[in-house]
Nucleic acid binder design. Structure first.
Lengths: 259, 259
DNA sequence: AAAAGAAAAAAAATCGACAAAATGGATAGC
DNA sequence: GCTATCCATTTTGTCGATTTTTTTTCTTTT
């Protein structure tokens, strides 16, 4: 109870600086809250009390409420009229849904990018992969330490893949869904590279190579498979087949889709 | 300037009632604003001044700002920090992007629905089509009058098609994209059925029949083609091919896709 | 006359306080 | 002993006023 009021004058100035950087206090609250939720700093369906948040971020109700409002449409916060806000609840079905949506959106965007991307795009993909690869190597298979840095590079790689798709909306939606899945990843990251069952970086490399070779079929297959891992890590392999049947058009039911 | 202050005590009570219905004033403001933007009541990139909106809806700044904040993440409102809000600008490229995203999301959802839907779902599809069909017939080819009713039925039909897809996110996204496109439709609805070039209800019927026959290939082809019409109506047929190449996976480049 | 700067006006963002609603707990009734 | 009702407390949602920032207007200077 004491540490909630631990915002003294010094902190207040700091917040002011950070707010100036972010543009406004609302923006500041929005970013901090979003990060805190994604980082799993609040438990799944936890109540987000205005009073607490005011104290936590050192500002008054208006910016906090506006930030919460913005996070509603993003799927990070849920609100019940007249009884406040809570962190959007997590569940196996929810992650399955996120995974499915990612497979739909990201696959489509990747297909477009492969068709439309130019040399500069290929360069960016290569660069993003390289940075991610080096980072993981440097940590010697233990990305636990610098989780935030790894996440950022991993996200950047996936973003680079579809950057040339030409659709702001698909890019935006990919980013949003990635962040939603990030929430689930945080719980399970600690065991991640010790699990030899899946060679994440190997998959990334294969994916990149297929992309650079403009082999759309292979790339889409790899991506689809790759996206399922978050779910498998969190809730086991079995139920992953729940969303198993391929997302959409084509594939023409050649086979029941190996992934 | 006078009609902006035209909120007297009587109106204020009315607003209170409506708010009670909506749950809160914020919710009320959110719905009204959203409707007004979709209905094209504000010009494309128009400034949304808090003072104006306060007067227009008869409430104070907080609910208005929260409503605006929520609309940001939805793509209906844009904000520049420290200099307020404006209606998200419209453009040909933007509608092309919406169309592309719809083709990606709605196609995937429809494929899933066709695979997973049960008898009850088929019933709902049939019912939604019937209501839409009857409404259009009753108006004798002039849906101009009751535009809102038509829109609602049309949206309900498209929603019914994918209702069985099993993915809350795909459903939600479809709805959001539909509404974003709605903004563009409003400008061009007045000439719509007189244009014999496209037989909208015929397309709807064909689509429904393909769906009920569980003919995924045909249904997806029809849907993809159908979704392009909003763009064609607004900006002409040529540029529609811009986003022409199919959204994503599969189709295996059998043919360059007739649509 | 044009550009730069200062002052005034307008608008946005934020705050502190209040009113309405919900929650939790105690008491009364069955 | 259990349920229902009322009251105290907490919390949300809303407002009006204040502060900060931007925009406009009016000087002043070159």
């Amino acid at each position: 109870m004491n540490d909630k009021k631990a915002i003294d004058k010094k902190d207040r100035e700091e917040i002011r600086d950070l707010a100036a950087e972010a543009g406004s206090l609302t923006e500041f609250a929005y970013r901090r809250l979003r990060e805190d939720i994604i980082a799993g700093h609040f438990p799944s369906g936890a109540k987000l009390q205005i009073e607490d948040l005011k104290a936590r971020y050192g500002l008054s109700a208006s910016p906090v409420r506006e930030a919460l409002s913005r996070l509603i449409s993003q799927g990070f916060v849920a609100s019940e009229s007249q009884r406040g806000f809570r962190v959007a609840p997590m569940s196996a079905e929810d992650l399955a849904d996120i995974t499915l949506a990612r497979q739909v959106v990201e696959s489509a965007a990747l297909a477009l990018a492969i068709r439309k991307g130019d040399d500069a795009w290929e360069g960016e993909v290569l660069s993003a992969f390289h940075k991610l690869d080096r980072h993981v190597l440097r940590l010697g298979g233990r990305p636990v330490q610098d989780l935030a840095a790894f996440s950022e590079l991993h996200k950047a790689f996936h973003a680079a893949l579809i950057a040339a798709c030409g659709s702001p909306r698909l890019i935006e939606e990919q980013s949003r869904l990635y962040d939603q899945a990030e929430r689930y990843r945080h719980g399970m990251m600690y065991s991640f590279l010790s699990d030899a069952e899946v060679d994440l970086m190997g998959e990334h490399r294969a994916l990149m190579e297929a992309v650079l070779a403009r082999d759309a079929d292979a790339a889409l297959r790899l991506l689809h498979h790759h996206l399922g891992h978050t779910y498998e890590f969190c809730f086991g392999k079995n139920a992953a087949e729940n969303s198993g049947p391929l997302p959409s058009t084509g594939q023409k039911t050649k086979r029941p889709a190996r992934s």
